[in-house]
Simulated assay, not measured.
Amino acid sequence: MPFKTLLTVTGPDHGDDDLRLAAGLCEEIDAHLCVLVLLIAAPPSGGEYAAVVSPAWLAEREAEVEILERRSSVVSKMLSESPVSADLSSDYPEQSWADEIIGRRARYADLTVIGAEMLASRSLKEKVIAGGLFSSGRPILLVPKGARVTLKPKRVLVAWDASLEASRAVRESLGILSAANEVRIVMIDPIEDERHHGAEPGADVATYLSRHGVKVAVDRLPSSNHFVADVLRQHAIDTGAELIVMGAYGHSRLRERIFGGVTKSLIEEPGLPILMAR
């Protein structure tokens, strides 16, 4: 399915680089751009009672609303000068509701684009990624600083572990994969049994993709005591991949937060553009 609507989220302390990035991708594939301007509301300093009686807290909230309105005005002007079709919305959610608000908005887009400014944001990054992955049912695209990104890549690496999450990522990116010149299915230490990768690891997914016209090759790689994320990043570089496609959070977020994991590592250091789905 082609991407027809892209979403990007921006905060009041962000510049316009992420917006230009998303607009450029929309122009490349003739898609509509949705922009959500978001500011997470300041929490009361002394609990719920303080939220009712504290003039300082109320003044802070009023100031934040003004900041949000100014940022929305700046973004609106930029979008009006852009050649792409676009719409703008804003929200001022509490901390606990921010990812759900983002997820609801992302349900009406085909892809959420997360650029370098958002990836560097301490206040919004985690909420945007969590909302995009867990509350929308849609994929996200991570674009690190300095990376060249296109939604018409010639060479794509698919990180395949036979999981439901990886299957969703492949399904969501079929339009990209079928148009590429080369798609490499990469498995790290694949297990040869019916509960995992089957008798011939990679054969089933390669056959599925070939029926969609994907020019596919299969790479079975040993981890050799290296982290899986590092092996994937290096193989992407070695094969000249312009995009990595992968499932996200095959383990729980809590487990990844405590012990680490492939998703967590690649979110922290993408290296190159990554399309993730869950």
Rank of each mutant, 00 (worst) to 15 (best):
P2M: 07
D13T: 11
G15R: 05
D16N: 08
D17E: 07
R20G: 13
A22V: 10
V35G: 05
V37K: 09
L38C: 06
L38H: 05
L38T: 07
A41E: 15
G46T: 15
E48K: 10
A56V: 15
L58A: 12
A59W: 13
R61Q: 13
A63N: 10
V65H: 14
S72Q: 11
A86S: 14
D87K: 10
L88M: 13
D91E: 10
P93Q: 09
S96R: 11
S96Q: 13
I101T: 15
R107C: 04
L111D: 01
T112M: 05
V113D: 03
A116S: 11
M118R: 05
S123A: 11
A130V: 11
A130D: 10
L133N: 00
F134T: 04
L141W: 01
L142H: 01
P144H: 00
T150D: 08
R155S: 07
R155H: 07
V156Y: 02
D161G: 03
E172C: 10
A180T: 02
V183Y: 00
I185W: 03
M187A: 10
G198T: 11
G198W: 08
A203E: 12
T207F: 12
R211V: 13
H212V: 11
L221V: 12
P222W: 04
F227V: 15
D230W: 09
D230N: 12
L232E: 01
A236Q: 00
I237S: 10
T239F: 09
T239H: 08
R253A: 05
R255W: 12
E256F: 08
T263R: 00
E269W: 15
L272H: 04
R278I: 00
